[in-house]
Design a binder for these strands. Structure first.
Lengths: 191, 191
DNA sequence: CGCGACGTTGATTTGCCTCAACGATTGTGG
DNA sequence: CCACAATCGTTGAGGCAAATCAACGTCGCG
C-alpha cells in the first residue's frame, strides 16, 4: 500500500522506520472513480496528494466553458493546488480523475506537524518543488518559443506514458491547442 | 547591505542574530554591469542569486539566434538556473543584467552547509519554490488559454514595475510574441 | 557626429481557430 | 443483448491573429 510513496520519498531523503511509521499515521487513502472530483473550483485545497495508481488532471474552466489542463498526474506523481494550499484561498481549479484511481492524501495541518517532527520532509518537499519548478520553466519555454507541432513531439518524447493513456483532446488542451489542430498535425508528421 | 535579503527571508522564517550572521558569512556580493553575464550557456550554475538592486533576466538562445526570456528579476527577487543548479549539468540558459545591478550570491556547497546547520533555510527555500511554482503555473495557464493581448495586460497589471523599466521588445519576448505584434496591440488598446 | 538600439508602420503570409459535419468506438439503460 | 447516446477523432471550408519581411524615424550614447 505505501511501498510506492516510500520509494518516491526515498529519492530525495532517507527515512528510518520510526519516521516512516509516523508519516504513514498521517496519511489517508482514497479511491476516486473516473470523472470524480478530488477538488472543485471554489474549495480550499487542504491536501497534498500522491497518486498510487491511476491518472488525474488539474484544469481551469474559463468563462466560455473551455477546460485548460494545467497538469496530468499518473502513478507515482504528486498533484494538488499549491496556490490554494499555500494561501488558504479558494481554488480556481478543478482536479478530477481520468481513470479509476487510488490516491494518498496528507492534509495541511498534518503536514505542518510532520515538518516540525521530521524536518527531513521539509527537505523532501523543497527538492520536489525545486524539480517541479524546473519542469514548469521548461514548459513555459516551449510555449513561448515553439510551434504547436514542436510542443507536441516534445510532449510525446517527455511523457510517452501519458500520451498513451489519456484521450488526444486532453493532450491538445495541455498543449494549448484545439483538438482539430492536434489531429491535423499528427497526420502530417506522425509521432 | 544585507538588510533587504534579511527582510526577504523573514517573510517566511524568523532568524536570530547568530543564524543570520552565519548566513551572511556564506554570502558574496557582486556588481554586474548592464549587458554583463552572470551565467552563460554551457556553464554549470553553482549559485542561488538574490538581486539587491537592478534588473536581470534569464533567457534561452535558440538555434535561429532568437532570445526567449524565461524570467526577469528585479530588486528583491531571486534568480538562478535551478535546472543546472540541481543536476550539476551545463545550463542551457544565459543570465545577464539589463541594468547595472548588485547581486548577492550563495554557492551550492555553502547552501548545503547552511541547510545542515540551520534547517530553517530548508523551510525558507521550500516555501520560496512552492510560491514560484504557483506563479509559473499561472503563467502557463495564461500561455495556453489567453490571446497575446490578454497576456500583455495580465503582465502589466501583475508586474507594473517591470513593464516600466525593461525595453518593450524584452516584454514581447517574455510573452512569447514578436515586438511588432506587441507594438500593434498596444496601439489598439493602450494600457 | 554617427551608429546601434528601439519602436512603429505597412504589406503579405501562415499557423491555428472556428464552425460544421461525419464515422468509429464505447458504454449504458431498456 | 440490442439500440441509442455520448465520447472521441477526423476532415473540410473559411477566417483571423500573429508572424514575417521590409522600411523608416527617433533617441541616446560612445
Amino acid at each position: 500500500m505505501f511501498d510506492l510513496i516510500r520509494k518516491n520519498i526515498s529519492k530525495h531523503v532517507k527515512l528510518n522506520e520510526e519516521e516512516f511509521t509516523f508519516f504513514v499515521s498521517l496519511l489517508r487513502v482514497k479511491k476516486i472513480r473516473k470523472k470524480q472530483f478530488l477538488l472543485e473550483e471554489g474549495e480550499v485545497c487542504q491536501f497534498e496528494c500522491f497518486v498510487n495508481s491511476g491518472c488525474l488532471r488539474q484544469f481551469y474552466l474559463d468563462d466560455s466553458g473551455q477546460e485548460h489542463i494545467i497538469q496530468f498526474a499518473v502513478t507515482d506523481w504528486w498533484i494538488s493546488d499549491q496556490y490554494s494550499f499555500l494561501t488558504g484561498l479558494p481554488s480556481p481549479y478543478f482536479i478530477d480523475a481520468l481513470e479509476n484511481s487510488e490516491v494518498i492524501l496528507i492534509n495541511k495541518t498534518s503536514l505542518e506537524d510532520l515538518y516540525q517532527k521530521v524536518p527531513k520532509f521539509e527537505r523532501f518537499f523543497r527538492i520536489a518543488f525545486q524539480s517541479s519548478y524546473v519542469a514548469l520553466q521548461k514548459r513555459i519555454l516551449a510555449n513561448i518559443s515553439q510551434t504547436a507541432e514542436e510542443r507536441y513531439h516534445n510532449f510525446v518524447s517527455t511523457y510517452p506514458e501519458i500520451e498513451q493513456r489519456v484521450p488526444q483532446h486532453q493532450v491538445a488542451s495541455y498543449l494549448g491547442i484545439k483538438p482539430e489542430s492536434l489531429s491535423r498535425l499528427k497526420k502530417q508528421r506522425p509521432a
